[in-house]
Design a protein around this nucleic acid. Sequence first.
RNA 1: GCUGGGAUAGUGAAGCGGUCAAACACGGGUGACUGUAAAUCAUCUGGCUCAGCCUUCGGGGGUUCGAAUCCCUCUCCCAGCA
Length: 296
Amino acid sequence: MATVREAPLVVIVGPTASGKTGLAIKLAKHWGGEIISADSRSIYRGMDIGTAKPSLVEQEGVVHFGLDLADPDQRFTAADFKKYAEAKIVDIRNREKVPILVGGTGLYIDGVIFDYSFDNSFNPELRATLQNLSAEELVEYCNQHSIELPQNRGNKRHLIRAIEIGGINHKRNSSLIDNCFVVGISPSRVELRERARQRAHIMFSAGVVEETIKLTQQFDWSLPSMSGSIYPIINRLLLGEISEAEVIELAVQSDMRLAKRQITWFRRNKAILWSESAEKGYLLASKALQAYKAEH
RNA sequence: GCUGGGAUAGUGAAGCGGUCAAACACGGGUGACUGUAAAUCAUCUGGCUCAGCCUUCGGGGGUUCGAAUCCCUCUCCCAGCA
């Protein structure tokens, strides 16, 4: 019987506005943990309020990694995140703390916990050229070059990626990495909607509009980092197209759609221990950590 | 009170005698997605005992083989005149 020397990797997943962040901080404070955020938007510097990034005050003194890793005009990928997170996990464990990976970006999470082998080819010129072709033409291209097609033939982005790597990446693991457990928070849709609405209001009083203005002065809307989040919606307010009340509605709507995609992604993961609330998720994670601590 | 315009599925909006359960957009559901992923895409969206059937196009009544589409009437909206 090999004894577990290292702390387990606690993973917390769930849709946006499910209360993951608060739960992770509570866990970290109680069990001596440090947090690694797995959120494809919180990695950007200067995008704080609009991405619901926990402020220093909200972090309650808990060490947070995964925040402010790149500028909005820098390229940062799931593979970059994987490398970064793995290093941090080692680092945290070396200091005998509990690593807590928390986030809603499924690809980031799975990259780490299923040890994805990302294909490192990246060809910006090819992408730019291919971008001018229609989905049908891209499918035709794949057929001519006998490149395996992605599931959705209407998805240009996936089609271009398939051409770039010469097919579909089939290196899949179905089992989790060792010494790791995953807790999923899945509140009801009504509750999520309510939380999203409250959050949108808070963003306004915290100054998202000012933050958006600052971002628009520095960055182009065509950047990947500038898509999604609440920023494009606020921009419509700045352009006088919609009112603040409409911004709230649209923000809630886009959050709910995001939540749906996140839930769909995570549902595939059979290893997740689901809880309908952050409170229950806390209990679940604590139980597992208790077992680990007992061995020490 | 008179004269014109209008009432269509969750919302907006086409249709203007048959091929209409009714275009399209939005909203909503489901799903895909291993180096853009808060992205990108697919699919469904009146009901049902679902290759068929049933109930819909403000209400009621007609015309017609056949109406959301034509006529009459009622109700409610909007514009102009009183």
